[in-house]
């Protein structure tokens, strides 16, 4: 899985914000704000990744159990899918 082209992650006033550019403005209205951990995962997903790779990245980066990482990742991926920012 991978973030679609045309979404920029910007940090403005200590806040991580996703901004659609060019054609993406057509399909994405509004604004997504991410906390720092979600922003890290967003950056990781700017390259094509397997689910297990992301879990490994979270486990090694944040020193958490695999089950906790999967639970948090599932919640984040659901939000990303609902927002339409992931390539299908």
């Amino acid at each position: 899985m991978k973030i679609k082209e045309g979404y920029l992650l910007r940090t403005i006033a200590d806040t991580n914000i996703i901004v659609p550019v060019s054609e993406r403005v057509i399909e994405f209205k509004g604004m997504i704000a991410l906390n720092d951990v979600s922003a890290e995962i967003w950056r990781f997903l700017e390259t094509e990744r397997e689910y297990s790779e992301i879990v490994d990245f979270m486990v090694s980066s944040y020193d958490i159990e695999k089950e906790a990482a999967e639970k948090d990742l599932d919640a984040l991926l659901k939000q990303m899918n609902d927002s339409g920012v992931l390539e299908s």
Partner: peptide
């Protein structure tokens, strides 16, 4: 670990506009 799906902590939209948040940080 914080839940990644939580809202950004730097700015909570319920009580402040983002423009106000930015103004307070110049």
């Amino acid at each position: 670990m914080k839940t990644p799906a939580h809202k950004a902590e730097a700015w909570e939209s319920a009580d402040s506009t983002f423009a106000a948040h930015a103004a307070r940080r110049r």
